[in-house]
């Protein structure tokens, strides 16, 4: 049981490459990144994003996580505003060599989990020499 009391963490604005034409807020999702012997796992908090709004890419060792929220009409008049709605964007440079074929991602409860398996370095092949 965790005794720690959760606090509201301020959302950090993300910097897209260049300004966007749409006046939409864009936030950097909070992440956990951990590594095991076999893979690197990125866990990102993206509440409000559905699978359809997700855009993941790994290009030149840069992992880009983009999440578009389902735009829904604001119901009625806002009387208390403590958080802002917005899209998510964050980029990471992945230092490890990643096996691009086996990248897996899952989205559950507003949390995205990306598994980046490490590429197995090519084993030097031993050539047995038989005596003739």
């Amino acid at each position: 049981m965790t005794a720690q009391e959760l606090k509201v963490q301020d959302k950090k604005a993300a910097q897209p490459g260049g300004e966007t034409t749409k006046n939409e807020a864009c936030f950097a999702p909070r992440v956990d990144i951990y590594e095991t012997e076999r893979e690197v796992t990125v866990v990102a908090e993206m509440p409000g994003v559905t699978v359809g709004g997700l855009d993941l890419s790994l290009e030149d060792n840069i992992l880009t996580i983009k999440g578009r929220r389902v735009v829904q009409e604001q119901p009625g008049r806002i009387i208390l505003a403590e958080y802002e709605n917005g899209n998510y964007l964050r980029r990471f440079t992945v230092a490890e060599t990643i096996d691009q074929e086996n990248i897996g991602a899952a989205l559950a409860d507003g949390v995205l989990t990306v598994h980046l398996p490490k590429a197995i370095p090519a084993q030097p092949r031993k050539i047995a020499v038989k005596l003739g």
Binding site: L6, I33, Y34
Partner: peptide
């Protein structure tokens, strides 16, 4: 899991 090393840990857990 065992053998996990964290690079970043920004997500907090706890009760509210």
């Amino acid at each position: 899991e065992s053998g996990v090393s964290y690079h970043r840990r920004e997500i907090e857990t706890g009760s509210f």
